[in-house]
Design a protein around this nucleic acid. Structure first.
Lengths: 182, 182
DNA sequence: GTCTATACACCGATAGAC
DNA sequence: GTCTATCGGTGTATAGAC
């Protein structure tokens, strides 16, 4: 099996159980590989698996979201594209937020820098788009941060309430929230 | 030592490490009690400790927030009081959100009902206040959910960015966000 | 590459002395 | 009430056959 496909199978385990709860047994079962085989692909063990997952997701965001945010489409189109990708990534709120899951406990110590960096890139890219749309820098940054907060918060609510509606509503309202009333 | 004081010392361990990461050793060290002594207070072990912590926090929210939301003050005053209490509880964003931490992995299986119930009470209480202020029911509920999403999201951002400013900004904007433009 | 078998540490939990 | 000592189980990780 390719390493990439293996990584894809690791993702839901970390997402659902968190870093500490993602045991080697569960990771082994989810991939269909024996424990020792996992160590063949990831010599650094569980930490290496989580690092690979983070890199995989970061690449996905880079290609699917950050890149198009920096493209030449008009701002409204970029926001719509981002909304669509987010809805896909989080399966309309059914899947937990990685940032939130991986910023707790041991994982937070291990990966804080990477996660912080990724979040900053996201905020910066979004801020840039809003400035292109004619919004003042400070206001643009504040709106971007607010939007990302809404998204993270919506994922928490969705998980706790077992209800994807708040997430879907937030996703739908992103264009207006970000570009409205300029 | 009183049981209540013991519970208070358990809280930061669960908050920082999550349920799986909050080991008996750490809980023992944080309380200053030996492992066996912890089991004297909490015969159900770690699950009992987490349950006690959840109950403690739920009581705090009930007395400090929900009750005043249902009081006789005017809505704006109630919102200000809630904002003040939230800022205190989360130490201006320095402390993680319990909902988010306890809705991952094994803890989610054990305590999902309690956590869902608490969140619903919060949303309902807030919705009620907004209706008192003359906001239509549907709109009131939506605003309440949005506000709580912002708060949860702000706590995620604060933790990842190591920066309390987004949280403080959200707290400050709560009155306008909830009661503005009616 | 993938497996079985296993090493060793730490987990949650308990027994029993004081 | 609090402790030390210890149990059985599971955690991460590795050795070595195939």
């Amino acid at each position: 099996m390719s390493k990439e496909k293996t990584i894809a199978k690791l993702i839901p385990v970390f997402r659902q159980h968190g870093y500490e709860g993602a045991t080697i047994s569960r990771l082994s079962q989810a991939t269909g590989l024996g424990k020792a085989s996992l160590y063949y692909y990831f010599p650094d063990g569980k930490e290496g698996m989580a690092a690979a997952v983070l890199e995989y997701i970061n690449n996905w965001f880079t290609n699917e979201i950050f890149q198009s945010l920096r493209g030449t489409n008009d701002p409204a189109e970029k926001i719509r594209k981002m909304s669509k990708s987010l809805d896909e990534f989080y399966r309309s709120g059914q899947d937990a937020c990685f940032l939130s899951v991986m910023s707790v406990g041991e994982a937070n110590n291990l990966f804080h820098n990477q996660i912080e960096q990724a979040l900053k890139v996201w905020i910066d890219s979004l801020t840039q788009v809003l400035q292109e749309a004619g919004i003042e820098p400070d206001r643009a940054r504040q709106r971007s941060e607010n939007a990302i907060m809404q998204i993270q918060g919506a994922l928490v609510l969705a998980r706790v309430l077992n209800d994807t509606k708040p997430f879907e509503r937030v996703i739908k309202s992103l264009p207006e929230m970000l570009l409205g009333g300029i």
